[in-house]
Every structure is written in structure tokens, then in C-alpha cells.
Simulated assay, not measured.
Amino acid sequence: MASPAMSRSPLQRLSTFKSTAAATPTTATATPTPLSPVPSHLDTFSSDPIFSAFLSPDFNPTQFSTAALSSGSAASRIEKLQEGLRLLDTQLRHEVLSRHQELLHQLSSVKAAESSLSSLRSSISSLQSSVRHARSELSDPHRVISAQTHQLNNLHSTSLLLQNTLRTLRLIHKLRNLVDSQPDASKWDLSKAAQLHYEILILYNESHLSGIDVVDAELKWVIGSAPK
């Protein structure tokens, strides 16, 4: 049958670790006392002639081993390193014991964050899928609307051009009637003829009617018939 010590969980076994400098025996009913702070051995390592080399960012294990062998003190160096490992192990255990509640809390927070992140990733993936679906559904109608809008603009421009062309031709027709009704130029209604001539030229230029053959042909007559 397994002994009670062997059936204990890792966390229970971890709680029995004590610093050799501060451990005191307690009974099962005694109120646990907080662990006394243990000075960090890393503070002494930085000033130690052997351990300080390990703190350097340029540490080279090959060079360290070569120097230890060439100095003839390899055995003492090994013993020193083993002592350092024991001190670090003690310090690490103390840190874990003194902060295990905080570590457990952080572990729980990390798991909760991972769960939230997983949910967020799933939501983002679903949103991206919806956006792609909506984009595919809207792309074809958008192309159709764009094409029809372009056609509508062309129809509007063409309609406006035709209206201005017809208006220009009507004004030219009025000017022709005015001129043809009185062969004697001295008896023309010059103010009315000048007004028609002015309106024809303004409408021709502002409506960009240049290039329309019928208008260009009539305009030559208008310019030639201008009152002198």
C-alpha cells in the first residue's frame, strides 16, 4: 500500500519545500507562517569572479572550460559550479513557494485569455466569411449599376446636346427668316438681328456644338450674314 507521502499531489509536495535558512517545524494544526524572504543569490553571483562570467552576454563555454583546465583548478571549479547550482535551486524553490498563488492566478488568467482569444478568432473568421459572402453578392449588382449609371450619363449628355443643337438651329432659322423677309439690308431690324446673332454664337460655344456638321454649316452662313 502506498504511503501517504507518495499519494500527495505535486502542489502538496511543493508546499513542503523550505529554505534551509528559514525553515521551522510546524504541526498539522499550526497556522502556517509566511516564508521569510531569502536574499537572491544572483546578487552575489554578479560580484563572484567565477559566476560573474556566466552573466556576461558574451559568455563562451568553450573558453571557460579551456581556462579552467589550463589553470589546473578544474576540480575546484566544478565543485564551485555545483555549489552554485544548489544555491540557484534553493532560490528557485523559494520563489515558486512564495509566489505560487500569484503564479496559479496568472495561469488561470492566461487560460481565460486564451479562451477569449480563441472565441475572438472564431468571431473574426465568421465575420470575414460574411464579408466575403456579402462582397460576392454585391459585386455583380454593383457592376450592373455602374454600367447603367454610365449609360444614363451618356443619354443625358446626348439629350442635352440635341436640345442645344435644335435650339441653335431654331435661332438660325429665325435669323434666316429675318434676313430673307427683307432683301434690303438697310431695312433690317438690326437690334433683333444682332440679338439673334449673339445668342447663336453664345449657345454654340457654351454647348460645345463644334463638330456637328449641320450646325457648322449653318454657322458659316450666320458669320457671313452678320450686320456690318
Rank of each mutant, 00 (worst) to 15 (best):
H105I: 11
H41R: 10
A112R: 13
L35T: 10
L190M: 06
R167L: 10
S71F: 07
F54C: 12
A185R: 11
H105W: 02
T20I: 13
R132S: 15
D180V: 04
M1Q: 08
H133P: 02
H100F: 04
S36Y: 01
N154K: 13
S46W: 07
F45V: 11
R143P: 04
E79H: 06
A28T: 15
P57F: 08
T62H: 03
S159Q: 08
F59I: 10
L201A: 07
D140F: 11
G211S: 01
L104R: 06
L92K: 10
A67D: 15
A28M: 12
A185S: 11
L160V: 02
S7T: 14
L178V: 01
F17N: 06
D140T: 14
S40K: 05
I212M: 00
K192F: 03
Q106G: 02
S225F: 06
H173Q: 06
L92W: 10
S119M: 07
S225L: 04
I145R: 11
P4Q: 10
I124V: 14
I212R: 00
A112S: 15
L88V: 12
P37R: 03
E79F: 03
L97N: 10
H197V: 03
S118N: 11
A217P: 00
V38D: 08
K187V: 00
L219T: 02
R135K: 15
S56Y: 03
T149G: 05
S71E: 12
F45W: 13
Y198M: 06
T20V: 14
N164D: 14
V215P: 00
F17T: 03
A22G: 00
R143N: 14
D43H: 10
S116K: 13
E218P: 03
Q63W: 02
R93F: 04
L161G: 02
I145T: 11
Y198R: 14
R86C: 03
T33I: 12
M6I: 14
I200Y: 01
S207D: 06
I145H: 03
T27K: 11
L171M: 12
N154L: 13
L152F: 12
S136V: 10
P57L: 05
Q91G: 12
I50Y: 11
S129T: 13
S70K: 15
S56W: 02
V96Q: 04
